[in-house]
Amino acid sequence: MEILNNFFLIALPYIALALFLVGSIYRYTHKGYKVSSLSSQFLEGRRLFYGAVPFHWGVFFLFFGHLIAVLFPRGVLAWNSQPVRLMILEISAFIFGISMLIGLINLFIRRYTTPRLKYVTNKMDLVIYILLITQTAFGLWIAYNFRWGSSWFSTLLTPYIYSIFKLQPDISAVSLLPWAVKIHIIIAFTIVAIIPFSRLIHFLVYPLNYLWRPYQQIRWNWGRKSVRSPKTAWSLHRPKNN
């Protein structure tokens, strides 16, 4: 049992993080052409709405919910100190979880019942569907059975995650958690590990830059103000683009 705990709660996170870091950087720098998700909306645009929208908004809020609990555990505990606020947090998180699960199931059915989508689906997509559906189901199961997750996450899991990042992994508390929680952790790190090898890579390139860039983009091959000036050796002004 201890070997299993050590492997899944210490070794796996480090393997996952290493794969994630090295793989993502490699894919971005060497396979830039493939850093995106292969959208299938063009081939099937109606049923996608009932899958992609609930799934993405659900995962968007839940991802940041978990992240906030990791980054500001005291803040979460302080928020939870009043039962009303705790209930608001837990219930909204549960709703997002359900939205995510419904979205995923819709996406899964859509992808495997629409004939055209067979030709833009690969094996990794199936792996992702299975992992994400299992993960979401376990998340909901945990939220329902082991209350209140937001509080004990901040006291139990946040120190564990910190210990991993501090390179002094401490699993004394985590190894005592119920098996459902452990599986949730294991699948989470597995998903992190396969990000660079799957369509999940697209969330790393969410185009935030769009917010502050000007709408129109012009690119020049040369510095147009200096190219004709005899005073500047224009071959020294190498372009920033391309």
């Binding site: 995106s36 709408y215 129109q216």
Partner: peptide, 28 residues
Amino acid sequence: VASCPSGAIYKRGEDGVVLINQEVCRAW
């Protein structure tokens, strides 16, 4: 060009041809 979230589309300054950089396009 204005709608591209990734900034993959641009207008060439010298001749005004509008192009999509296939390496930067993220299929939004």
